[in-house]
């Protein structure tokens, strides 16, 4: 499918050597939204939790110490930047790398919640993310083998073959596993309203944006 018919009129190309970024209104909107959210997260603070104790009239406050807070904020900001990069890139290769980076960062963000239940769920998520690197990288490699290029600008004019569609389906499975299922596991951490939970929002946001972008890329490859 033509790039123009999916994301609106082509606003321009940014050629950086063999990496060519192309800008649509659609990509530009998602890129800017992601950057704004990343900025909000960068200046945000963790919430302090007050727990009522059983048997007494005391309350217990749970706070996050500065070191852990910094580590979490760093992971969230990098995750936001990676998502923004995945929105604007015009290259299957970069999209794959950004997606796998988001997978690792999601594991890091969720696993910084030190509760046994949450660690249990992030262990399961990490296993699925590791397994899904097979369809993700394998699908991208199959598309590369079938097209001879990973640039979306070049792929859009190639007529889809069976191998390309197979690779695209594999890539979709990989994207689902790397970041699409992350909210189901992050919600376990959110349900308990853990101290410092606002940073988990970036997990939801990045998976939402990534899935939209991946579907657009798959439409470019398959049609």
């Amino acid at each position: 499918m033509n790039i123009g018919s999916l994301g609106g009129d082509l606003l321009g190309l940014i050629p950086l050597g063999d990496i060519v970024l192309y800008i649509n209104p659609f990509h530009l909107f998602m890129f800017v939204t992601m950057l704004i959210f990343t900025f909000l997260i960068a200046i945000g603070r963790t919430e302090t939790q007050v727990e009522t104790q059983f048997g007494t009239l005391d309350d217990k406050t749970k706070t996050v110490d500065l070191k852990e807070f910094r580590a979490r904020r760093f992971l969230s900001v990098v995750c936001g930047i990676a998502t923004a990069g995945a929105m604007i890139t015009g290259d299957l290769y970069n999209l794959t790398l950004f997606m796998s980076l988001i997978g690792i960062l999601n594991i890091g963000i969720i696993s910084s919640v030190k509760q046994i239940d949450v660690l249990d769920s992030v262990f399961q998520y990490g296993l699925i993310a590791m397994m899904c690197s097979l369809p993700l990288f394998g699908g991208a490699a199959l598309v590369l083998g079938a097209c001879g290029t990973v640039s979306l600008l070049a792929i859009q004019s190639i007529k889809p073959t069976a191998m390309m569609i197979f690779g695209a389906i594999l890539m979709f499975i990989g994207a689902c596993g790397e970041s699409g299922i992350a909210p189901f596991f992050a919600s376990k951490a959110e349900m308990f309203r853990t101290p410092g939970s606002p940073f988990l929002l970036i997990v939801h946001l990045s998976s939402l944006f990534i899935i939209i972008r991946v579907i657009e890329v798959l439409l470019i490859i398959c049609t």
Binding site: G103, I104, I107, S111, L119, F123, G126, M130
Partner: peptide, 13 residues
């Protein structure tokens, strides 16, 4: 990516 993920997951475990 594989290496980083397996390190992270074993740390979690």
């Amino acid at each position: 990516v594989e290496l980083a993920e397996i390190l992270a997951i074993s740390e979690i475990l």
